[in-house]
Design a protein around this nucleic acid. Structure first.
Lengths: 253, 253
DNA sequence: AGAGAAAATCTCGTTCTGAGAATAACTTAG
DNA sequence: CTAAGTTATTCTCAGAACGAGATTTTCTCT
């Protein structure tokens, strides 16, 4: 049972509570050379100086949370106009930051063709790191430790992306405006770490209303080692997929 | 481009930023007499005095966010031991609270058989309100306005519950430890506002491994107006459903 | 005992899915 | 220029899943 006086003060003077800082952290994912990568920075200042971390920072006064996420990420890389951003959730363990109580709102950002990052003001280094090197996907080296609870946030972001591929048109957010069926399939295969049957995938995608629309045009050239020219598609109106594109039942291969 | 000095201060002295308060708000849902209901309180103090709102309050120092959500809800109703709680996300519009900058972490809580609420220290009244009266479900009266951005949070919570019925075993969280197939179907029908084919639902649920397990026992009595006694099931080990129980394709009836 | 009601099972035609084969269209080696 | 290899796309078919309805079982109430 709480102290009534405390509750009274809380209603009338929220500032009477111990100070809490609010930050945003961003899980930014994109495809580079056919493999999914995440943007990480190496911290130039304590705590966790020298450790890799998610881009992020403190929310400014009178700034919206999503705006803060975009601003912080814009300090590390040039953002294209059409990014997908959604909130992952709040992370507020009392011990997650050794300095003080910090509650962080994490965002998931997906985009195509994000350029090489530039180190921000408080980052010593910034790099796109393949998810395989971060403990996602098959095998790979031992993942490097991340600062704060950023490993958990990154894992939540990757899992969110993986599961939203099933029932939303999220995969197109990883791709440029026009893409091939094979490119779309690559997104699914790379994030799920599963080989998909190309013919069945093709049939399924076209059977979902509004998922992709045929541009009527073809790629300029066939594949590097030969092959028919692929049809080009654009993302359709649909945001949710009916019926869904479910992950194969078995475990990751 | 941010002011480097400001960033420097942010790294070393987070408290230099304008004060932000962190609260939790809870969307608590349960089934009462076959209809889904949400717990609302009527505010006894400004701002929004007299308006209906979600239960919630300020996070204490050194208190975990989920702990705070359970504590705040425990002030309004007696919580059983087996509740399902998950985070909905952070709500941080700069103007969502007229007093000051307040970032709220919202939680979704599901449980069976929650008792009648008792007004908390800062609530004038507390009540279970059918979702139909809050603008969810078919028709119903014009929904009452809620304080702050709680209407949006409630909508997110209901939609989260609705969609997680499809691919997780969440529906059992609305039910007591032992339940009938009809009871489980009622949860789906009430939340989705769709009549389901009882025979096909029965077949589908039993075909999902680990969704429910047969206790081998039957209800003590048949239905009130006659009818065969129903088999009793318990929730199984599975947390995610493979294959999923997808919502019918059409719109809400 | 009979009517009505609810639970559980069965039937059947349609659709969806997984797996492989077949075809079409291209690049490159020679 | 042609054959071999490669990729994209379409086709086929058997098995599984699904929607809708009928049927059977076992209760309660009159």
């Amino acid at each position: 049972m709480p102290d009534p006086e405390e509750t009274f003060l809380a209603e009338y003077d929220p500032a009477a509570f111990p100070p809490v800082a609010v930050t945003v952290d961003v899980v930014a994912l994109t495809m580079r050379e056919g493999v999914p990568v995440a943007l990480l920075i190496r911290r130039g200042v304590p705590p966790f100086q020298g450790a890799w971390a998610l881009p992020g920072g403190f929310v400014h006064a009178d700034e919206d949370l999503a705006t803060a996420a975009l601003r912080e990420l814009g300090e590390e890389t040039r953002l294209p106009s059409d990014v997908h951003i959604e909130q992952l959730g709040g992370y507020g363990s009392p011990t997650r930051d050794p300095r003080m109580r910090v509650v962080s709102i994490a965002y998931l950002l997906l985009a195509a063709d994000l350029p090489d990052p530039r180190p921000g003001t408080d980052a010593a280094e910034a790099a796109w790191v393949p998810l395989r090197e971060l403990g996602f996907g098959t095998g790979g080296p031992t993942p490097r430790p991340l600062a704060f609870d950023h490993a958990a946030i990154l894992a939540d972001g990757v899992e969110r992306a993986r599961s939203k591929l099933e029932y939303t048109a999220l995969a197109t957010a990883f791709l440029p405006a026009e893409f091939t069926m094979a490119g779309l399939r690559e997104v699914y295969e790379a994030l799920w770490n599963v080989p998909l049957h190309a013919a069945n995938f093709h049939r399924k995608v076209l059977s979902v209303p509004g998922f992709v629309v045929d541009t009527g045009r073809l790629t300029a050239q066939g594949g590097g080692r030969g092959g028919r020219r692929a049809r080009l598609y654009r993302a359709g109106d649909a945001t949710s997929l009916h019926p869904a594109l479910l992950r194969p039942a078995g475990e990751e291969s």
